[in-house]
Amino acid sequence: MTMAALDANTPVMEHEDTRDSRRLGLWLTFPAQILVLFIAVFPILMQVYISLTDWSPLDGIGWWQAHELWNSFANYSDLMADDRFWSALWRTVLVMAICVPCEFLLGLGLAILFVDDFPGRRFLYSVLLIPMMVVPAVAGYMFFMLFQSGGPVNDILSFFYGAPVTIAWLSDPDLAFFAVIVSDIWQWTPLMFLILLAGMVGVPEDQLRAATLLGASWATRFRTIVLPRMKTIIIIALAIRVIENFKVFDNFYIMTGGGPGVATETISIYIYKVTQQELIWGYVAAVALVILIALSVVSALAIKRMSREVSQ
């Protein structure tokens, strides 16, 4: 072993490797690939299997024996007719359609404010990121307290209104829906802000200067340079939040338990209830699979879009 080998391994590799070394690399990573495949694929196959049966842990037989309770596609046809499932799904999409744009616009606004330096910027920046670090269950509990009829929200409203206000936030279906959405926006706007700020800082300074010297106003620069340059990161931020938001559970469950009635029952809360309270796991597996497929389609579209952007 001499220095040449060490030199040789450093920066010369500009061109393609030879075909031999590529094949060797494939063989070397083969065991790891098998392992990854197993970890990722096995639970899904298990889900598919169970979703085609009536199996429940109460039946007293192991999941691998579930074929004794084979029901073909009964779970899936039940699902199609399950109003509660469809309304939970619709509600989840509605939460997403309200929360994600609000978080995006708030995050973008904050990013614009924070992209240039001002006194106290670092401090405010840290403060702004706090909600993101709070455990969602704790955040749920906080907002549960805030929205009590004798809680701080009503106190503040009373102060401005001049008379005692006793709105039953979490008992009214519409108001409860509003309250859980507020809690989600409070918690996740900082993440959007963080990602968008990172993207905005990455816009080349010289291009902005060049645009300014060519006579472009702030708004023009923002529209023609900043936004197009942030396109990829915006798509990433939105994709993350859409996928995350679909899975929203903790704070909703703690604030309202999905209620009153099913007024705030999202798909996760619905699955949780069916799993833990009704224990029909074959059915749950079917629900979970349908959601997985739906989410995969959304992410695949987003990733395709992203890679197209990046390749440009």
Binding site: P204, D206, Q207, R209, A210, A211, L213, P228, Q312
Partner: peptide
């Protein structure tokens, strides 16, 4: 003023 930057600052997304 017209300004030509050392790195040209071309708008590469256009």
């Amino acid at each position: 003023v017209g300004f030509v930057f050392q790195n040209y600052a071309i708008f590469t997304h256009m």
